[in-house]
Nucleic acid binder design. Structure first.
Length: 433
DNA sequence: TCTGGGGTCCTAGGACCC
DNA sequence: TCTGGGGTCCTAGGACCC
């Protein structure tokens, strides 16, 4: 550790030029976890992903050397790297590793903003009594995570979250980079605009049209010009980002008092379909899944959104705000199905449908106006019974009758799969389609 | 066999209310 | 008569991130 005689800086953070914001990001997280116990795969290109019409979720650096990267269609990835080993993600294992990593973060500071399973912002200004500098915190975390999980991560240290995030990306793989305040513009300005966080394909194209390719170009363009082209908000934000100005603070999110804002589910058909019965059956399945997750999270939601993606990838959404909030499969499904009907599609080739519920509130605080035509104990009781059965017997134990179809004869012959519970909700699941 | 599934946030127009 | 402005909610779409 540090030599005893070293002069103590006025503030400890001065050792890193005032940097107390850190971004930590696992390297090729899904792929690293997939291969960590399989030495035979260490130097082989490995791709995590798959599914019938899927994309690459993560690729090892050996696979990236062939041009494979995440979000790439699997078909293309296989063409680029035919000898790659393809592995399906193991979300149970990933979430165990993720929890352990987050615990390591929280052992150095309570100010942790989780961004996803494998990355977070940390404000370590309060940790500088235990550590000499943010760099030391970063080194400690890197060593500890490797020790405990045998995966590497990269750390960016800066004075703002956005710069820290870019620094960790630059440090990859298995590195740590500090960008002190006085080096921020030298760090940012040579970057290509699309490297900025929040600049995707569409924005990059727009910026290129304006002749702006580097972050430095962006910085030296009058903010009014950017605002005219991109809108007031985006223009100002981009200009500020190009100078490393960022009023974002690291905010521990999703505390018990802050629920998710929406819960949804969508699914791409294995083959495009123009069969309305198939679509409605899928909407019912998705509604059941969403509603069950809502009830498990003890939230109700007020707005149901239907998403439809067509064969050519054009995507539309339709939403409706309900009179009362709900977490009921029936109500969500009925709304989604009605929105679908109102599209008036005729033999359109559909690639994907989705159901999402927004405007979530704590179920305990949700109000419900009793209607005269409504029995005191209706669907909600039935659905709670379904939840209990699913918890006990698994997801296939209870399904709405319309989802049984071909598997129904199996259910009848195999009571061990809790076939009798198909009676679950007594009626109605079958009504709408 | 091009292009997943989970989300968040922003914008913009129209309705509606005061 | 012919025209306010601000605030909020709803809806649709788009962009982006991992």
């Amino acid at each position: 550790m540090a030599e005893a005689a070293r002069p103590v800086p006025t503030t400890r953070a001065a050792a890193d030029g005032g940097c107390t914001i850190m971004h930590v990001d696992m390297d090729a997280f899904y792929a690293s976890v997939a291969i960590r116990d399989r030495p035979e795969l260490q130097d082989v290109p490995v791709i995590v992903g798959g599914g019938h019409r899927g994309v690459v979720l993560s690729a090892t650096y050996a696979a990236r050397a062939h041009g494979v990267h995440s979000a790439m269609p699997m078909t293309r990835a296989r063409r680029l790297c035919p000898r790659a080993v393809i592995i399906a993600p193991d979300f149970d294992e990933l979430s165990v590793v993720s929890s352990s990593v987050m615990e390591a973060f929280r052992s150095v500071t309570s100010v942790v903003e989780v961004l996803s399973m494998d990355e977070a912002f940390l404000d370590v200004s309060g940790s500088l009594r235990r550590f000499d500098s943010a760099t030391e915190v970063g080194s400690y975390l890197r060593a500890r995570i490797y020790d405990e999980q045998q995966i590497t991560c990269s750390v960016g240290v800066a004075t703002t979250p956005t710069v820290a995030k870019l620094a960790s990306r630059r440090a990859k793989p298995d590195g740590l980079l500090v960008v002190p305040r006085h080096e921020v513009t030298a760090f940012l300005h040579p970057m290509r605009v699309e490297e900025l966080w929040g600049v995707g394909e569409a924005t990059a194209t727009q910026l290129h049209r304006l002749g702006l390719r580097r972050v430095g170009d962006l910085a030296h363009t009058p903010v009014e010009v950017l605002q005219r082209a991109m809108g007031a908000g985006s223009g100002a934000r981009l200009h500020a980002m190009a100078w490393g100005v960022d009023d974002r603070v690291v905010t521990p999110r999703r505390g018990p008092d802050e629920p998710e804002r929406s819960i949804g589910s969508d699914e791409t058909f294995s083959r495009d379909t123009d069969d309305e019965v198939v679509v409605r059956r899928e909407l019912l399945r998705l509604s059941a899944k969403v509603a069950m997750r809502m009830r498990a999270a003890q939230v109700c939601g007020g707005t149901v959104t239907l998403k439809v993606r067509f064969h050519d990838f054009t995507t539309i959404t339709r939403s409706r705000t309900l009179r009362d909030t709900t977490s009921g499969t029936q109500e969500i499904y009925a709304t989604a199905a009605e929105l679908f009907s109102r599209l008036g599609l005729e033999r359109a080739r559909i690639r994907l449908v989705g159901v999402r519920v927004e405007g979530l509130v704590d179920a305990a605080r949700a109000t419900r106006q009793l209607r005269l035509d409504e029995p005191a104990h209706g669907w909600e009781d039935a659905e709670r019974a379904v939840d209990r059965a699913v918890n006990r017997f698994g997801g296939s134990a209870v399904r709405p009758a319309t989802l049984l179809h071909k598997s129904s004869h199996l259910a009848r012959r195999a009571p061990a799969s809790a076939g009798s519970l198909h009676a679950g909700p007594p009626q109605g699941y079958d009504q709408a389609p």
